[in-house]
Computed example of a mutant assay.
Amino acid sequence: MIDHLDHLVLTAVDAEATVDFYTRVMGMQLETFGAGRMAFRYGNQKINLHIRGQEFEPKAHVPVPGALDLCFIASIPLEQVVARLNEARWPIIEGPILRTGATGPIRSVYVRDPDLNLIEISEMV
Rank of each mutant, 00 (worst) to 15 (best):
L70S: 03
F56Q: 13
H7R: 05
Q54P: 09
D14Y: 04
A12H: 05
N86W: 09
L8E: 01
S75L: 13
T11K: 00
P114W: 02
N117H: 07
A88D: 09
G27T: 05
H61I: 12
L78G: 05
W90Q: 09
E123A: 12
L68P: 02
F33A: 12
L70H: 00
R84F: 05
F56K: 15
D6V: 14
V25D: 00
N48R: 12
T18N: 04
I51A: 09
K59C: 14
I73R: 04
R84C: 08
I106Q: 00
R112S: 07
L49A: 10
H7I: 10
Q29A: 15
D20P: 14
A39K: 00
T32V: 14
G104W: 00
L5Y: 04
D20Q: 11
L5W: 03
L8N: 06
T103E: 13
R41W: 03
F40H: 00
Y42S: 11
D3K: 12
A17T: 09
R37Y: 08
P77C: 06
I76L: 11
H61A: 15
P91H: 07
E120P: 03
R84Y: 03
Q54R: 12
Y110T: 10
Y22T: 10
D69M: 05
E16M: 15
G34P: 03
P63G: 03
G43C: 11
A35P: 01
S108E: 02
T32H: 02
A35V: 12
H61S: 14
Q45N: 07
A39I: 07
E87S: 14
A102D: 04
P114H: 01
L98D: 13
I76Q: 03
I119D: 02
G27I: 08
I51G: 05
E55S: 10
P77M: 10
V13H: 06
V125K: 07
I51Q: 06
F56M: 15
D113R: 05
R107I: 11
T23S: 04
V13K: 07
L5D: 01
E55A: 08
A67Y: 07
E120D: 05
R99V: 12
V25C: 01
F40G: 02
I73A: 11
R24S: 09
E55V: 11
Q54T: 15
D113W: 01
P91C: 14
V81C: 03
G53N: 06
R112F: 14
S122D: 04
G34E: 03
S75A: 14
E31L: 14
D115W: 03
F33L: 13
D113L: 11
S75V: 14
